[in-house]
Amino acid sequence: MDGYKVAELFSGAGLMGGGFKAAGFRSVFAAELDGKAVQTYNKNIEPVAEKWDVSEVKCDLKYDVLVAGPPCQGFSTLGRRDPKDVRNALSLKVFDWAEKHRPLVVVIENVPQFLNSDYCRELKERFEKSGYDSVSWLLNAADYGVAQNRKRSFTIFSLIGLPNKPQPCKERVTVKEAFSGLPKEANGENFHISPTPSELALARMKLIPENGDKRDLIKKAPDLCPPSWIKMGAQAVDVWGRMGLEKPANTIRCSFQSASKGRYLHPTENRVISLREGARIQGIPDDWSFVGDRTSIARQIGNGVPVPLAKAVALSITDLLKRRSSY
C-alpha cells in the first residue's frame, strides 16, 4: 500500500477513520471533544486522537487527506434546522486547517441538507479561491454493504482533480445477515448488551409483531398506551417499532437503545437491539472495543459514518491519489 496519510476533524469514535484504515490509509491525527470517543478511537484505529478543539489549528502536521464530519444538528431535518445554530459555523473551520496544511484532498461528511446551506456555499467559495476543485455526492449506506438506510452527503475538495463516485454494491445487506452469528439473547459478551425492559415496556413489546410499531399497540391494547399516542395517531410511526429481518434497518441514531426513539426493537426478541447489534448495523467489526458507559457507547456508534460507506469513499480517494502519482 502507498501509505497515504489522513487527518480527521470531529472524528468521533473513529468510524470514518476505520473506513479509511480499511482502505489502506494511515491516521496521523484526529481531533474530537468527547474524551470517551477519543479513547475508543485510539484503541481501534491508531493512538493519534486527542481531545482537541478544532478552532485551534494544530501546527506541524503533514497528511494527504483531511476528513471532517462537522456537527449536523443545525442542518438535520430531525432538529430545528436553525441557521443561527452556533455549531453550524464549525464547518467553516475545516477550511482553516486546509489552508494551513494544504492537503491534496479534503472530505466533508454531513447530512444531505448541508449541501443547501449557506455554510456549504461559503466553503465552496473559499476552497475555490484557494485552488481546490469540488464535487458533492449523496450516498446511501445501504448501497455500500451496510444493513441500514442512511443517506449522507460527501463534499470533496481537491488540488489534483476530482474522484469518481463510488459504485454501489449489487445486493443489499439485511438485518438478518448483519445479526448472523450473534446469540438472540443479549448475553453481555463483547458489548452484546441491551437494557432490561420495565414491566410495562415488556408488555408492549410482546404485542408488537415483526415490522410492527406503536400502531399495533393502539389497536390491540390501548390501555398500555399513553394518551399522547392516541392523540397523535399515525404520526411518528417508527416509535416502538420492530426492525424487519429481510431488509436494511432504518437509520441508527445515538438513542437506539430506547424503544421510544425509533424503530429499534429487535426483529423477534422482546428487547431493543444491543450495542453490538447497533455496531453490526453500522458495519463496525466485532473486534472493536468501546470505552464508556452504555449511553456513551451508543452515542459513539450512532454518531458515526458506517465503516463500509467510509471505506467506499476512501477507495475513491485512493484511486484519485494513484492517478495523480502515475502522471
Rank of each mutant, 00 (worst) to 15 (best):
D133A: 12
R152T: 11
R152L: 11
P168W: 08
F114P: 06
K124Y: 00
A178S: 15
L162K: 11
E109A: 06
V146K: 08
P163F: 07
K124I: 14
N110S: 15
E185D: 05
Q167Y: 02
L123C: 07
G145D: 04
R172Y: 08
S136N: 11
L115V: 12
F154C: 06
S117D: 12
R102H: 06
C120Q: 14
A142P: 04
G131Y: 04
R121C: 04
V105R: 06
K129P: 00
S136V: 08
Y144M: 02
V107I: 15
V106C: 06
G131S: 02
N190S: 12
A141S: 14
S117A: 10
E189K: 15
S158C: 07
K129Q: 08
A186H: 06
K176T: 01
S117W: 11
K165H: 04
S153K: 09
K129M: 04
E128M: 00
V146L: 03
Y132W: 01
D143W: 12
I108K: 12
R150K: 13
V111S: 12
P183E: 07
V175E: 08
E189I: 15
A141D: 08
E122T: 15
K124V: 14
N190A: 12
V105W: 05
N140D: 15
K124T: 14
L115Q: 09
L182R: 05
V106W: 05
G188M: 01
N164G: 12
K184D: 10
P168D: 11
R121S: 13
A147Q: 07
F154D: 04
T174I: 05
L104S: 06
N116Q: 14
P183G: 11
G131F: 02
W137K: 02
N190G: 04
F127D: 03
N187S: 01
P163E: 05
K184M: 03
E125V: 08
V111Y: 13
G131T: 04
Y144I: 03
G131M: 02
V106S: 06
D118C: 08
A186K: 03
K151M: 13
E125R: 11
P112G: 09
N187H: 01
F127Y: 09
V175P: 08
K124C: 10
R172G: 10
L139E: 11
F157P: 03
G188K: 08
E125G: 00
T155M: 07
S130D: 15
Q167A: 14
R102K: 12
E171A: 11
P112N: 12
P168R: 07
E125H: 02
P112T: 12
I108H: 11
I108P: 11
Q167K: 14
Q113G: 13
S153M: 09
Q113M: 11
S134G: 01
K184F: 04
N140P: 00
A142V: 11
